[in-house]
């Protein structure tokens, strides 16, 4: 565990906490894409199947369980408790266009052709694009609440910090996983436009509003 990875994990955790707090405090999930949240739940459940087969550390197990459980709680809040506030009309991204290619790619390009490894690879590919429905929703409504922007910034930073972690591990431990690195690059690049708007607008106290 190096500092980049720890900061990445913490950033990921902070993102989830911000999202849950936003929904809970405002009693509303307006502006949040339920489709992205479903994709994240699929990502965690398929990636962390190794909870049953491999033990890495208490930290590792704890975080995996937190990610799986909070993603399920989020889906419950959006589709049951605060369903009335959910932005159905704007959340129209077709997630099968992300799930199916990720699955096909995972079947073709993986480290090992076993069920658990293909599902791990699928989750890595799917995670890299899982934010697209959310970004699509923001672009459709043309704006995002500050709290949603903070959530997106923390969530986007997490894989960016992982990239630094992989550079570090390459030099310090001679360890690298090309699948994770390429997917992590794609994932971070997808956030670049948002990062720019976040730094130039939200951090200066303005609302995140897209140019008309």
């Amino acid at each position: 565990m190096n500092i980049f990875r720890l900061l990445g994990d913490l950033s990921h955790l902070v993102a989830i906490i911000i999202l849950l707090l936003k929904i809970w405090k405002t009693r509303s999930c307006a502006g949040i894409s339920g489709k992205s949240q479903i994709l994240f739940a699929i990502v965690y459940t398929t990636r962390y199947l190794d909870l049953f087969t491999t033990y890495v550390s208490t930290y590792n197990t704890f975080m995996k369980l937190v990610f799986i459980m909070t993603s399920i709680v989020t889906i419950f809040l959006m589709n049951a408790k605060f369903k009335a506030t959910y932005d159905h009309n704007h959340d129209t991204f077709r997630i099968e266009f992300l799930i199916l290619p990720a699955l096909v790619l995972a079947l073709l390009i993986n480290n090992e052709f076993t069920i658990i490894e293909v599902l791990w690879t699928f989750s890595i590919y799917l995670e890299s694009v899982a934010i697209l429905p959310q970004l699509f929703l923001v672009s459709k409504t043309g704006e995002a609440e500050s709290i949603t922007s903070h959530y997106l910034f923390a969530l986007g930073s997490y894989r960016g910090l992982y990239l630094l972690n992989w550079v570090y591990r390459y030099y310090a431990e001679d360890h690298y996983d090309l699948i994770a690195i390429v997917a992590g690059l794609v994932q971070t690049i997808l956030y670049c436009d948002f990062f720019y708007l976040y730094i130039t607008k939200v951090l200066k106290g303005k609302k995140l509003q897209l140019p008309a």
Binding site: R5, D9, H12, R47, D50, T54, V56, N60, M63, K64, F67, N111, E112, E117, W120, Y162, N165, D174, H175, Y176, D177, A180
Partner: peptide
């Protein structure tokens, strides 16, 4: 890089 597929990251 060893070809073990244990993933120690999240």
């Amino acid at each position: 890089q060893t070809l073990e597929t244990t993933h120690d990251e999240l």
